[in-house]
């Protein structure tokens, strides 16, 4: 295998890994503060991407065509909108079910995800067909031998990693982060310290959902296509990544995201004649990993939860 192909696989893996990590941290944050799995996460991500796409249509319609201004507008609308949706779901669907068995929350969010997906398919104009997402990033590329390094990939990876870094700072260095970790470790004692529990839960869901929307926009900018089903596979991969890493652990989720992307890339490289099987390969390895380490690679006991 030549250098160019290996570099291509590597660049692709890093980009996918960043994207998956951004989805996985949401699962881990939600599980941290509420001990729930929110299965609608992927579909909320899809909805957020469609909000961004709609914002782009709106900007085009009013004649704002500068791609950088469009990009800022798309990101602002998508992240803020999705953060609000995430907080609303927490407030009206997940917190009220707090005393119910966890299975109920799982079922409710599974159904909510389906409802969101079907609603976009049915009610978004021509929603059942894929949409061409605009290429807002420069399409320049640098040739290194037989490998073409795309400028948009570099920008996406750097901004994605910066977002993960910022999230890490928020969790470990700010007052809100201290409150989120306190709630994750002992809800009742956190309340006794004077922490507004409901507010912290809503903030956590807003942050996790906004971060996932960023992954959705990344996905759109990279593939230049979005569709109503995109959240299903991204959500499943993000969930797997969070589980592999040891649910409840922020670093585990990031590690899990990159590990899953690595598996996909290895699958695609090993099976060049049938790269469509890369997901089968990746999920098969995840199943094997779970059989080997049922509590994830970084078990919660020996590591910081959230």
């Amino acid at each position: 295998m030549d250098f160019g192909l290996i570099a291509q696989y590597l660049a692709n893996g890093i980009l996918l890994g960043t994207m998956y990590a951004l989805v996985a941290v949401g699962f881990t944050l939600f599980f941290g503060v509420l001990d729930v799995i929110k299965f609608s996460h992927g579909d909320v991500l899809m909805l957020g991407t469609f909000i961004g796409f709609t914002a782009w249509l709106g900007l085009e319609a009013i004649g704002i065509v500068n791609p950088w201004i469009q990009l800022v507008g798309v990101l602002l609308c998508s992240l803020a909108g999705t953060a609000l949706i995430g907080a609303a779901i927490a407030n009206w669907l997940i917190l009220p079910l707090k005393k119910a068995p966890q299975l109920n929350t799982l079922l409710i969010t599974l159904m909510l995800g389906t409802a969101i997906r079907e609603a976009v398919r049915l009610f978004y104009p021509n929603g059942s067909n894929p949409k061409a997402f605009p290429a807002l990033l420069p399409d320049a590329s640098v040739e290194i031998g037989s490998f073409a390094l795309r400028a948009d990939s570099v920008i996406l990876v750097i901004s994605g990693l910066a977002l993960i870094g910022a999230l890490n700072l928020v969790i470990n260095r700010t007052r809100l982060g201290l409150a989120i970790r306190a709630v994750a470790q002992d809800e009742e004692t956190a309340r006794t310290m004077g922490i507004n529990y409901t507010l912290v839960v809503l903030a956590t869901f807003a942050i996790g959902s906004g971060v996932a929307a960023f992954a959705g926009i990344m996905n759109g900018l990279y593939y230049n296509e979005i569709n109503f089903g995109m959240g299903l596979i991204l959500g499943l991969i993000g969930f797997s990544a969070a589980i592999i890493g040891g649910l409840g652990n922020l670093y585990g989720a990031i590690l899990g995201g990159f590990l899953f992307a690595g598996l996909q890339v290895i699958g695609a490289a090993l099976l060049p004649f049938a790269s469509a099987y890369k997901d089968v390969f990746a999920f098969a390895v995840v199943i094997a990993l779970m059989a080997w380490k049922p509590t994830g690679l970084i078990p919660e006991r020996s590591s910081d939860r959230v």
Binding site: R175, L178, A179, R181, A182, Q185, D186, E188, T189, A190, T192, M193, G194, I195, D304, R305
Partner: peptide, 21 residues
């Protein structure tokens, strides 16, 4: 609280700071 209820995975300083949240 009864049973002291530490935040076990936080440092002593972080535990104390939470008292002044």
């Amino acid at each position: 609280p009864e049973g002291r209820r530490m935040f076990p995975k936080m440092s002593v300083t972080e535990n104390l700071r939470l008292g002044a949240y």
